[in-house]
Each structure stands twice: as C-alpha cells, then as structure tokens.
Amino acid sequence: MPIIKVENLVKKFGNVTAVNDVSFNVEEGTIFGFLGPNGAGKTTTINILCALLSPTSGKASIDGHDCAKESALVRKSIGIVFQDTTLDKDLTAEENLIFHAYLYNVEKSERQKRVDDALKFVDLFGRKDDLVKKFSGGMKRKLEVARGLIHRPKVLFLDEPTLGLDPQSRTNLWEFITELPKKHNVTIFMTTHYMEEAEVCNDIAIIDNGKIIAGGSPAELKKIIGGDVIYLKTKDNLKAVDEVKKALNVDASVKDGEIFISTIKGDACIPDIIRTLGDSVLSVRLQRPTLNDVFLKLTGKAIREDESSGADTIKEEVRAYRRRHQS
C-alpha cells in the first residue's frame, strides 16, 4: 500500500513551470529519495505534499488524505525537516521540542516523556538546557529530526538534510537516518542533490526541470548505465571516441570533457582501449556505476554543474512571483 501517492502533479509560478506532470508512489516503511539538481522542483513538490502550496493541477495524497483539501489531517501525519533550520535559536533544545509537542497537541501525560526520549535519541539530553544558538550545524539538524518525530508522524520529510554539514557530521547523520524507519515506524521522504547519499534509499525518483526522468531502486537505476563506466581523457577526445567505437564496438561519448564508455566488463576492456589509442591517452579511470553516472547518462550533464546559473534564476523567479502574489 503506497503511503504517498502523487498523480500528474503540476505547479506553475506565473510562466515558470516548477513541477511538470509528476507522478510517483512511496511505499510505507521505506526510504524514498527524490533526486535532482537545485531548482529541479524538489522543494516545490515537498511544499505541495506538506500542504504549504496548492498545486496548479494534479493530485497528491498522504496516508489517504488529499494534500490540497485535507491539510489539517495531512499536517498531523507528517514531520518535516526543511533545508534551512526552523529552530528558535533563542530557546533551549528542550524548549524547542516542548513547543512542538504543544503545537501538535501531544497529550499532557506523554509530553515530557516524548521530549526526553527524543533528546536522548539524538544524544542531546545532556545539553537540553543550552540555547540552540550554541549548537553546531550537525546538532541542530539532528535536533530538528528528533523534533519532527515527536508527534509520531507517518511520513518524515527531509529536504536536503545534509546541506551545509561537514563530511563527518554528514556520515553520522546518514547512519542515524537509515535507522529511522525501523526504530520509529516511519516512512522517509528525502531530497538531495548528492547522488552518493541516495544509495541508502529503497526507491528513487530522479527529477530534472520539473519532470521525473527515471525511477526505481538504486540497483535498477544503475542498470540503465549497463555495467561499468570507463572515464578517459585523451589528447583529442573527439577523434578517440570514433576510434574506440570502431575498434571495440562499445558505447562511447564525450561528456564534460571526458570520454564516457559504458561496458559490461570494464577491467578487461581497459587494455584494449590503451592498445587502440596508444600514446594519446592521458588518463583512465574505471568506475562502478553510481547514481551520478545515471544522472549524467540521462541528462548529459553532471548533477551539480548548473547549481549557480539556471537553478538560481528559477529560484529567484519563483520567489519574486510568490512575493508579488502575497502582498
């Protein structure tokens, strides 16, 4: 039984289409990864699922509740950790959680216990009386995840949970997140633009320019690549591609200044390539497929390359539109 159902969802801001006919399902108790570059439409989709935005057309439901029409029921059954922190930095860790417990109408007899358990779960019980502004980025993020679980939601949304964290806290947070479905009986819906982070997901949907371009488990997605990938730099990439294709009968193309060869047995293929191209080879590297390769293969670009240019323009336009239409 899917707990999240999204059918033909469309959201337009003026003439920008942020989400364009998106459909997917998320099964209960799984970790679902929503992947794509910045500005692809991930946050807009989350905002619709959380009943913060109404869709232009299409349907989204959580646990059988329509996100556009039954916003109160939807809000009760979800927890959210946004990209930017939404803690009150001038309150203590404990006060932030108590605030949440009241806001979600947690029963009086349960309140303190749930707050204490949440603090212990993220190892912050010892610092419960410290103001949140004294916490590191990783601690804040964990505290937010703990807060999101206090009202026992069915689905926990994590929007770019590791953004802005150092590598160590990032690994740490991932270990913690992967335990959540079992420990808390919750479905995780997360977005990220770090492909390697999505490997922990049971299912993935890849979104680009507001459209879903691929979906499935990480293993299924990697099959799109068709085995291993050899990255090759040569003195003349265009000429080398033709030579390799002719001599070895493999699928090769130039992307991002490198030759990208997908083949079943990469290790065995490398000697053949070097024999064919001889001196012109500058570097070779073999990679088992990653989700980044999948994205590269599907869109012809690396997932993070247009972070600053196109994506930010879309974000800006969306913000400007919302501002105009709010006041």
Partner: peptide, 14 residues
Amino acid sequence: EFGFMKEILVAPVS
C-alpha cells in the same frame, strides 16, 4: 526571516 514561522505554519493549527 529565521525560518521559525515555517515550524508553526506546517503544524496542524488553524
């Protein structure tokens, strides 16, 4: 500005 309003707005509160 500091994001806390979102915590209130996503809650099941009128």
